[in-house]
């Protein structure tokens, strides 16, 4: 059987069990979030042994080089000695709430002071911690040159972090965030490539960040952004996105709602259905998918079948931690 050595103890893995599940089962206090390789809050370091290839997916090259891995998706076949990441204390940064505005009845736009030397790519996410130390991932909508970090936080009923952020936070409060992570962002190098962006709900946050980053880097291929919600009230920033589409020649915006009767200018169809119907051949395209987990996963398969290469599909399923 496979053994995990951690902080002077060893633990036996059950067949098929992940390193994280094993540590949790044995009552070890470890940090974690989505338990599915998305949020990276459980990131650890391998001190002896080799991490499985899969357990390093989504980590950036530098983290890989440092032998970081994600214990939640690591089912090793050989013994490993693992440790908490060294960066963990440095990874938590205190910052200040600059502004709170509602983008619709349930989505808060939270602007935080950007800490000094805080590096990120728009579209990556950070973990925001509530006063009890519970952390959740939120995507970054602001731009590299802006002095603030912008997050769009939907109020989930009874949500530990989103509820606190939406009802308790005030301007001037101090909050704890992590450094930025994730690989759903704009990569330069192919400015003429057509971009297809599909998001539901606050999936617009990373897309808004990525879109402006692409334009800042003079992306000149056509950019099509489909933003959807099941109900009309779930959309937000519609006027702002429309104005941008009017202003920017290669940018096209499609607000979609899965309801029958919708106001003029809104499409009465699910965002992913419309996008796939509009573009049946996606070979050569780059695709960004953000938001609702099932939408992201099923659309990833459909866009791949429509011709997009897997290495051109960037996706951020908003997996819930609870």
């Amino acid at each position: 059987m496979t053994k995990i050595h951690f902080e002077n103890q060893s633990y036996l893995l059950e067949p098929g069990e992940s390193v994280l599940d094993c540590l949790i089962r044995q009552g070890v206090a470890v940090e974690y979030g989505c338990k599915s390789g998305g949020c990276q809050s459980c990131k650890m370091k391998v001190v002896a042994g080799t991490p499985t290839e899969q357990s390093q997916t989504g980590l950036d090259d530098s983290a890989r080089e440092k032998n970081y891995f994600l214990p939640c998706i690591c089912v090793p076949e050989q013994d490993m000695k693992v440790a908490r990441p060294d960066a963990v204390s440095r990874d938590k940064l205190e910052t200040e709430v600059l502004a709170l505005d509602m983008l619709n009845h349930e989505v808060l736009r939270l602007r935080l002071q950007r800490p000094d030397n805080y590096d990120y790519f728009p579209g990556q996410f950070l973990n925001l911690y509530n006063p009890e130390g519970v952390g959740r991932a939120y995507s970054i909508a602001s731009q590299a040159e802006e002095s603030f970090l912008e997050l769009h936080i939907r109020h989930v009923p009874n949500g530990k972090v989103s509820g606190w952020a939406n009802t308790r936070l005030e301007t001037g409060d101090r909050v704890i965030i992590s450094s930025a992570a994730g690989d759903c962002f704009y990569v330069s190098g192919k400015p003429e490539q057509p971009l297809l962006m599909i998001g539901t709900g606050t999936g617009l946050a990373p897309l808004f960040g990525i879109l402006r980053d692409a334009l800042r880097q003079n992306h000149n291929g056509e950019i099509h952004l489909y933003h959807g919600s099941s109900v009309i009230e779930g959309l937000y920033m519609v006027d702002e996105m429309r104005a941008m589409a009017d202003r920017v020649e290669n940018f096209h915006y499609y607000p979609c709602v899965g309801q029958d009767s919708v106001p003029k200018g809104i499409f009465s169809v699910r965002e992913n259905q419309k996008a796939l119907a509009d573009w049946s051949d996606l070979s050569g395209w780059r695709v960004y998918l953000c938001g609702h987990e099932e939408m992201v996963i099923s659309t990833k398969e459909k866009t791949f079948l429509a011709g997009a290469s897997l290495s051109d599909i960037y996706s951020d399923p908003f997996v819930s931690a609870a």
Partner: peptide, 23 residues
Amino acid sequence: ELFYRKVLADDRINRFFQGVDMD
């Protein structure tokens, strides 16, 4: 990718390949 696309589009066998992370 060509092969994977064919397999996913083939109703005789695609059920064996679904539900796993695509990468």
